[in-house]
């Protein structure tokens, strides 16, 4: 996960360098995520997604606008408990915590990485569909998940892999 220092560096970079350079760095940093977005899903999908989001919020002003004034804690975990982490949003920034936090707005338990990928990104399947298929269990405010789904797809859109 990106450290506070890394995020500071990325934000400074985004302020200093022109848009083309920023975008170029963004594409390089998000290359692993772009591959996962294209369907090459690995067990690391969640980590790659959150890391990609974190970097994108630092580098892309337009993407950062999505979370201005927004606060919320998300907990993600696999059904077997092997993977678990939190994404914490607070007015324009996002922090990833490798531990599940409480309290949370929403907790997502998912069967495996492909199930989470389908839940968030599959073209003909969405959040409701994954719940119907019992691949994903959501505890808490579904609206936060809807927003997170948008953030993931918006990033996909910005990376040109939608």
């Amino acid at each position: 996960m990106a450290t506070t220092l890394k995020k500071f560096a990325l934000r400074t970079f985004s302020r200093v360098f022109p848009e083309g350079t920023r975008n170029s760095l963004h594409r390089r940093l998000c290359k692993p995520l772009a591959e996962q977005f294209c369907g090459k899903v690995t067990d690391e999908f969640l980590e790659v997604l959150l890391r990609g989001m974190e970097a994108s919020f630092c580098l892309l002003k337009g993407y950062r606008e999505n979370i201005e004034g927004f606060s919320g804690t998300y907990v993600f975990r696999t059904d077997d408990g092997r993977v678990g982490c939190s994404a914490v949003f607070s007015d324009g920034s996002m922090d990833v915590d490798p531990k599940p936090r409480a309290p949370y707005e929403v907790r997502v338990s998912f069967k495996d990485a492909p199930a989470l990928w389908r839940f968030l990104l599959a073209e003909n399947q969405d959040i409701l569909d994954s719940i119907l298929a019992n691949d994903v269990d959501v505890d808490g405010n579904l609206n936060y998940i809807y927003k997170f789904g948008f953030l993931a797809r918006d990033l996909q859109h910005r990376l040109g892999v939608a």
């Binding site: 969405d126 809807y146 948008f150 797809r153 918006d154 939608a162």
Partner: peptide
């Protein structure tokens, strides 16, 4: 209405 949020970018391409 918020249930449409995740698919704002993709709803034009629904099958």
């Amino acid at each position: 209405a918020l249930s449409l949020w995740p698919e704002l970018w993709t709803m034009t391409r629904r099958g």
